[in-house]
Deep mutational scan, measured.
Amino acid sequence: MLEGKVKWFNSEKGFGFIEVEGQDDVFVHFSAIQGEGFKTLEEGQAVSFEIVEGNRGPQAANVTKEA
């Protein structure tokens, strides 16, 4: 699992990017966010995740919000 911070997330469109120190930003789709209820992320929020190869390159999977 990697750790990063949410760079930005558009809850209307359901996607955004996660910043990872020393690496390129990683695309995140709302469907990759773990948990119940409305799936969104806040700018600057700490998250842990895995990287998988998507249709358009690397993207986040199994995203969990850090306490």
Rank of each mutant, 00 (worst) to 15 (best):
M1W: 13
M1Q: 13
M1E: 08
M1T: 13
M1D: 06
M1H: 11
M1I: 13
M1V: 13
L2Q: 10
L2E: 06
L2V: 12
E3L: 14
E3T: 15
G4P: 01
G4E: 01
G4K: 01
G4N: 01
G4F: 02
G4W: 02
K5Y: 07
K5G: 03
K5R: 11
K5D: 03
K5V: 07
V6Y: 01
V6C: 04
V6L: 04
V6N: 01
K7V: 06
K7E: 02
K7M: 04
K7F: 04
K7S: 05
W8M: 05
W8G: 02
W8I: 04
W8P: 00
W8Q: 03
W8N: 03
F9K: 02
F9T: 02
N10A: 08
N10L: 08
N10Y: 07
N10V: 06
N10S: 13
N10R: 10
S11P: 14
S11K: 15
S11F: 13
S11R: 15
S11H: 15
S11V: 13
S11N: 12
S11G: 13
E12D: 12
E12V: 12
E12Y: 15
E12L: 13
E12P: 08
E12K: 14
K13N: 07
K13G: 05
K13V: 07
K13E: 04
K13D: 03
K13M: 10
K13I: 08
G14Q: 03
G14S: 02
G14E: 01
G14A: 03
G14D: 01
F15Y: 14
F15W: 15
F15H: 09
G16E: 00
G16D: 00
G16A: 01
G16T: 00
G16K: 00
F17K: 05
F17T: 03
F17W: 07
F17I: 06
F17H: 04
F17N: 02
I18R: 00
I18P: 00
I18V: 05
I18N: 00
I18E: 00
I18D: 00
I18T: 00
I18L: 10
I18S: 00
I18H: 00
E19C: 06
E19G: 10
E19Q: 15
V20A: 08
V20R: 11
V20G: 04
V20H: 08
E21P: 14
E21Y: 12
E21L: 13
G22H: 09
G22D: 07
G22K: 08
G22S: 08
G22A: 08
Q23D: 09
Q23Y: 13
Q23I: 11
D24T: 10
D24Q: 14
D24I: 12
D24G: 15
D25Q: 06
D25N: 10
D25K: 05
D25M: 08
D25A: 07
D25E: 06
V26F: 05
V26R: 03
V26Q: 02
V26K: 03
V26M: 05
F27H: 02
F27T: 01
F27A: 02
F27N: 02
F27L: 04
F27D: 00
V28R: 00
V28I: 10
V28W: 02
V28H: 00
V28M: 05
V28K: 00
H29I: 05
H29F: 12
F30K: 07
F30R: 14
F30A: 08
F30L: 04
F30C: 04
S31L: 08
S31C: 04
S31I: 05
S31D: 04
A32L: 03
A32S: 11
A32W: 05
I33Y: 03
Q34V: 15
Q34G: 10
Q34N: 15
G35M: 15
G35D: 09
G35C: 05
G35N: 09
G35A: 10
E36S: 11
E36T: 11
E36C: 06
E36K: 09
E36A: 11
G37W: 06
G37R: 06
G37A: 08
G37T: 06
G37L: 05
G37Q: 07
F38I: 09
F38P: 11
F38V: 08
F38Q: 08
F38A: 07
F38S: 08
F38C: 06
K39Q: 14
K39G: 06
T40C: 06
T40E: 08
T40S: 12
T40F: 12
T40A: 10
T40N: 09
T40Y: 11
L41R: 01
L41V: 05
L41G: 02
L41Q: 01
L41T: 03
L41D: 01
E42V: 15
E42F: 14
E42K: 13
E42I: 11
E42G: 11
E43C: 06
E43G: 13
E43V: 13
G44I: 02
G44K: 08
Q45K: 06
Q45C: 05
Q45G: 07
Q45V: 09
Q45Y: 07
Q45W: 14
A46V: 13
A46M: 11
A46H: 15
A46L: 12
A46N: 13
V47R: 00
V47E: 00
V47H: 00
S48C: 05
S48N: 14
S48I: 11
S48R: 14
F49H: 01
F49W: 02
F49D: 00
E50L: 10
E50V: 09
E50F: 13
E50C: 05
E50R: 06
E50P: 01
I51S: 04
I51M: 10
V52P: 02
V52Y: 10
E53P: 15
E53I: 14
E53H: 12
E53Y: 14
E53D: 14
E53C: 06
E53S: 12
G54H: 08
G54W: 11
G54Q: 08
G54S: 12
G54R: 08
G54Y: 10
N55C: 05
N55I: 13
N55R: 13
N55Q: 13
N55D: 13
N55F: 15
R56S: 12
R56G: 11
R56W: 13
R56V: 08
R56Y: 15
R56E: 08
R56T: 09
G57K: 06
G57N: 05
G57Y: 05
P58T: 10
P58V: 11
P58D: 05
P58C: 05
Q59A: 10
Q59H: 10
Q59V: 10
Q59T: 09
Q59M: 11
Q59E: 11
Q59Y: 11
A60C: 04
A60T: 02
A60Y: 01
A60R: 00
A60N: 01
A60F: 01
A60E: 00
A61T: 12
A61K: 10
A61D: 08
A61R: 09
A61P: 01
A61W: 11
N62D: 05
N62T: 09
N62H: 10
V63R: 00
V63H: 00
T64D: 08
T64P: 02
T64Y: 11
T64S: 12
K65G: 09
K65I: 14
K65T: 10
K65V: 12
E66C: 06
E66W: 14
A67E: 11
A67V: 12
A67M: 10
A67D: 09
A67I: 15
A67K: 14
A67P: 13
A67S: 12
